[in-house]
Amino acid sequence: MSTWSMALRQSDYYWTLYRRTWKGSVFSSFLTPLLYVLAMGVLLGGFVEADPSRLEGAPSYLAFVAPGLLAAQTMQTAVFETTYPVLSATKWQRVYFGMNATPLRALDIANAALGFVLLRLVLIAIVFVAVLAPFGVFVSVPAAIGALLVSILVGAAIGMPVYAYAVGVPNESSFSLIFRLGVIPQFLFSGAFFPISNLSPALEWLARLTPLYQGVDLTRMLSLGTWHTGPALVHLAYLLVLLVVFHRVAVRRLAKRLAF
């Protein structure tokens, strides 16, 4: 049986879950981008009078920060969706163990869970882009669509290693490492809010290596129309490798967790 059809067998489960929670999430998924873009883009941006050449080609700080916010938001959503809900499924509610007692295999269970995360990312990103667009931060409609697609890839690529880690952890204290060392420093220092050329050379290199920088730069290229094929392909390859490699790690670790 193909993993595609096995994963689809879980669609009713995830649909039921989604129906229970969408009301809570729909409001915040509109509000978050609005607050961000008002606070960081409009208000903070009002104080920032930088030369466009120092903003990686963005005409305004608002236009500079918008793609950074979008990529950072899909990262945060992805990390959230691949930590606590996963621990719930392996430890608190043990639903993965219930699924594992049926014809579903670790591969199918992981794929369905990840597919659900992907759908959430798609929804979050669509709302985010729709809220940002009226502020004129995308140079064109294709630019907005490109930024949307790429930001989804960013979330998925960052969520994958987190999922791979989460399926094997014993309790929630293991997650503080991810939030303190992974999410917060990346959020602040990976070029979402200021060009990383402002960092010291060593830190700039470190920032360049983070997945969020790769994603922010790619999203920004698309939304500003400053596409450079060479760097863009590097970013894409980086994110795709992350996705593929850690998918394998995730399935292996989940299989080990379930087959004790």
Partner: peptide
Amino acid sequence: LYVYGRYFG
């Protein structure tokens, strides 16, 4: 019950 039954196809 419903979602579990679906896992069996």
